[in-house]
Design a binder for these strands. Structure first.
Lengths: 156, 156
DNA sequence: ACGACAAGTTCCTTAAGGGAACTCTGTTTG
DNA sequence: CAAACAGAGTTCCCTTAAGGAACTTGTCGT
């Protein structure tokens, strides 16, 4: 289906999609995050095709988001999040917050997060790293940065 | 390619992917967000196939993330973010932060955000809505919520 | 030696993305 | 008044990715 590569665009959103934008990848990360970390476990949990799971795991390992770690003398391994991968969980938490609000419906959220620091059931909120005030769509102006390729189209 | 539908899973990540998980969708949202809002503009900016762009726009409108708004007597329209869509921009900002940190390389970030409240070039940080402390992967425990389908597999 | 098991591979079918050409509706221009 | 124009899609064909089931490989316990 010769899908367009996003990684070459001068856009951090596009580049991020190149790492975890393929179908299933965020769900695989979620599984690994919550401790479902072996091939058979992930395959059974998600119902994903074994072929596609192999491709996704290889890609995520290649990208440095997951690492393969043996847990036996046999050729057996678990997948674990690298630091790069752990920081992607931010993305999953924001997806969860949005999905809980707009798509959960009557039944309510399927999963709750308890925050260690305060012990409350809570959600994430986006704040400015500088002043600590809320930082959402209407609160910012996008400006060209140093990596803005003057001519690089498409995908500025 | 008969892709599996994620929307039926009892998982807000999966459900969110059902709305914006298809290739190009986040980039279309980004374009609309920054004011690239007409069919021809988006098509030219992204280099996306017209056929796929039509499909994505229809889906995003169906999902209530975008709305079609006429700007002329002729059959001409612009796409605009609904409230549901505006809140998805949180996700784009977190993707940008991650991509800036891990994928921008030497050149640095292609786009910078200036925060209105403080005037600084800044990024988003995830905080607990309850106590205001940082809330990242290691700071929480996931618990089953009211919408957790006891038997709904796969994708809990 | 033999069966079990995790972790892939292989192979076939179906459908989604890419891309170019075409259509439709209404509008300026000559 | 006909012709060219423009935005917003449609249609068609080709290639490739996802689904799914069956098969392979390496190692262990008995």
């Amino acid at each position: 289906m010769q899908r367009t590569r996003f990684g070459d665009m001068a856009c951090s959103i596009a580049r991020t999609l190149d790492v975890i934008g393929e179908p299933w990848s965020p769900l695989i990360l979620r599984d690994v995050w919550v401790g479902i970390s072996r091939f058979e476990q992930i395959q059974a949990d998600l119902g994903i095709s074994r072929k596609v799971l192999t491709e996704r795991l290889n890609h995520l390992v290649d990208q440095g988001v997951l690492e393969r770690r043996p847990y036996d003398h046999r050729p057996r391994h678990e997948y674990h999040l690298t630091q790069k991968g752990i920081e992607l969980v931010d993305l999953l938490m924001v997806m969860t917050t949005w999905g809980d609000k707009w798509l959960a419906g009557e039944a309510g959220p399927p999963v709750l997060y308890r925050h260690h620091a305060c012990g409350e059931i809570s959600q994430v909120d986006l704040r400015c790293t500088h002043c600590g005030e809320p930082m959402h769509a209407g609160d910012i102006d996008p400006l060209p940065g140093p990596g803005a390729a003057a001519h690089a189209r498409p995908g500025g």
